[in-house]
Amino acid sequence: MNDEPMTHETARGLAAAYVLGALEPTEEAAVRAHLQTCAEPHDEFAELGGVVPYLVELPGLELVEPPASLRGRIMAAAAADLAERTATASPAPTAATPRLAEAPAAPAAPPSVVEPGTTVPFPSATEGTERTARRGASPLGWVARIAAVVAIVILGGWILVLQGQLSDARAYDRAVAAVIDAASKPGSQTVVLTPTKDSRGAGIAAVAPDGSVVMAMRDLPATAGTQVYEAWVIAAGSPAPVPVGSFTVGQAGTAAFTTTPVTTPPGSTIALSLEPGPGSTAPRGTIVATGVSALPKS
């Protein structure tokens, strides 16, 4: 910004205001430029900068929980950013991943590497979101809720892509699109299915107004022999699980399934169990995933 470079002494003198962000824009730019080019030590910047976060404790900061929808917004935006990064044919989720791998003290597992040119195909999911945004009595509540679901779903799809199962990811994507389509109809409920302890299998579902449940599941262990996954609805206020249909799962671990319609008021539990064979009237096998249906927040 300034043509004249700032002297080291001047920059040091501005350290306190700089770390506080209390400099005028031109001064701040000059200090930043100085820090980037000057090889002299600048201890005071770090020393004073380390104090700034404690100013949070100045009296009067009221701790406020952010609205629950903010998490969904952030996760959806990050998922979109991730999809964009991958779509622009970068060889890895971030350009700096190779550097990351070299970091000597990286305490976590090395990052997964995505093959060059891999893209995350979620156009239909996005279209679903846009459709949803135009429908319904309370579009904003819907958008937030669907965005949260899409974030979860994209994460699931992303993991599939990492495993190199692109066609499975596409199949899962179509299943998700079907769920979102069903969820976008007025009066539908959404369900996030999470695995039970020691089980695998997660996904999302929409309960259509007629009571049928449209599911997109991933990460389910493959069925073998006569085994099936049976879907159950435990209606709110009723103790008895009602079987609503069964399906098999291949090596990909994904499933798209629509159940027989039964009465499913908000707050009903949707469960999946792994049964030795079709036709169970009560769950005999392990319950692998459950979720509770809910109307979108308005």
Binding site: V56, L61, E62, L63, V64, E65, P66, L70, R71, I74, M75, A78, A79, L82, R85, A92, P93, T94, A96, T97, L100, P111, S112, A151, I154, L155, W158
Partner: peptide, 21 residues
């Protein structure tokens, strides 16, 4: 940094109240 969304969510959940406040 490796692009894992659930890690971002963990970070968010840990610091969301402070950040929002």
């Amino acid at each position: 940094a490796a692009g894992q969304l659930d890690a971002l969510q963990e970070l968010y959940d840990k610091y969301r109240v402070m950040a929002y406040s």
